[in-house]
Computed example of a mutant assay.
Amino acid sequence: MRKKLIVSADDFGFSEAYNYGAVKGYQEGIITVLSLMSNMASAPHGVNLAKREVPKANLVLHTNFVQGKPVSEPEHIRSLVNEKGQFYRSYEWKGDNPSDKKCIGNIVVTVEDCYKETVAQINRFRELTGYYPNHFEGHSVINKNISAAFHQAAMEFHIHCMTEPEVETEKWHPVHEIMTGNPLFMEILDRGLRPEDIYEDRFGILNSPYEYNIIHLHPGYVDAYILDNSSLTTARCRDLQTACDPGVKQWLLDHDIELVDFSSIYK
C-alpha cells in the first residue's frame, strides 16, 4: 500500500502576507491544500491570489469560530459572539477537559449556533470560489458541540469533514489525522516545522496503518495583522521554509509517499 499524504496550509485568508506565503508553499513546496477561513477580511484576497497564481490548487474550508467576525448575523449565534459581535477568543471558551490549557474561560457554545455558522461559512466559501469545498475542518478549537455540528453539516452537504471521530460514508476513504495523539505535535506547532522533523519521521508517517494521512501546517509570511491577532508568528515562517526545502520533498519521494489533496479521497 503506497502511503498518500495531504499537507494542508491552514489559516489561508488570515492575512494578505500569510496568503502570499501559503501560495508559495503550494507552488514551490509540499503544500497540497489551501484551507480557507472564509469569514476573514483577507479571504477574498486569498481566493483571488489562488485563482491567479495556482488555479488548480485544492481550496477547502477552515471553519473558524474564534477569530474575527462571523458570517452569520451575531444575534443568530449568541453563544459564539461577544457584545461587539466578534467571536470569543479560544481562551474565553470553557474546555471539555478541565486540564485544557487553551480553553480556560466559561463560554459554552451550542451545537445549534456552531451548525448555523458552519453552514454560513460553507456558503460564503461558495460565494468566494464559485463552488462548495470538498472538505472542511475546524480552526484552533474542537469540542463535542462543534463535532456534533460538523457531523450534521457534513452529512447535509455531503462534504468530507475531519473531526473526532471522522465522518464516515461510502463516498470517501478514511483520512488519518496523523498529529492527533502525537506528543510532539504542540512542540512542532509552537516552534514551527524543521526538516529533521520529516527526516526523522517524528509524525510517524512511515508506520501509519492508514493509506491516507494528513499534516496541518501554517506556512506563511507575517504582517502586522498576524502579530496583533495570533500567538503563532515566527513558527509560520519556519513552516514555510521547511515546506519549500527541496530535501523534504526528496525524502517523501525516497520513501514512496505520494502528495495528494482531498479530491483523491473521494471514491
Rank of each mutant, 00 (worst) to 15 (best):
Y88T: 09
Y88A: 10
Y88K: 06
Y88V: 05
R89L: 05
R89I: 11
R89V: 15
S90L: 10
S90A: 13
S90D: 08
S90Q: 10
Y91S: 13
Y91M: 14
Y91R: 10
Y91E: 13
E92W: 03
E92N: 12
E92C: 09
E92Y: 05
E92F: 05
W93V: 02
W93P: 02
W93Q: 04
K94C: 10
K94W: 01
K94Q: 11
G95T: 08
G95R: 04
G95H: 06
G95V: 07
D96C: 08
D96H: 02
D96R: 00
N97C: 15
N97E: 15
N97M: 13
N97W: 12
N97D: 15
N97F: 11
P98G: 09
P98T: 07
P98F: 12
S99I: 08
S99L: 15
S99N: 15
D100A: 11
D100S: 13
D100R: 10
D100N: 15
D100K: 11
K101I: 12
K101T: 10
K101S: 13
K101R: 14
K101E: 13
K101N: 14
K102F: 14
K102C: 09
K102M: 15
K102P: 07
K102R: 13
K102V: 13
C103N: 06
C103R: 00
C103A: 15
C103D: 06
C103K: 01
I104C: 08
G105L: 07
G105T: 05
G105S: 09
G105Y: 05
G105H: 03
G105A: 07
G105D: 08
G105R: 03
N106Q: 10
I107R: 01
I107G: 00
I107D: 00
I107M: 01
I107T: 04
I107A: 03
V108C: 10
V108F: 01
V108L: 09
V108P: 09
V108E: 04
V109Q: 06
V109W: 01
V109R: 08
V109H: 06
V109S: 05
V109M: 02
T110S: 14
T110A: 11
T110C: 10
T110I: 12
T110L: 11
V111Y: 12
V111C: 14
V111D: 05
V111W: 08
V111S: 15
V111K: 13
V111I: 14
E112M: 08
E112D: 02
D113E: 02
D113F: 02
D113C: 03
D113M: 02
D113Q: 05
D113V: 00
C114D: 00
C114V: 00
C114S: 08
C114Y: 00
C114N: 03
C114R: 00
C114E: 00
C114W: 00
Y115S: 08
Y115D: 01
Y115F: 14
K116L: 07
K116D: 00
K116H: 07
K116E: 01
K116A: 05
K116Q: 05
E117L: 05
E117K: 12
E117Q: 06
E117H: 12
E117S: 12
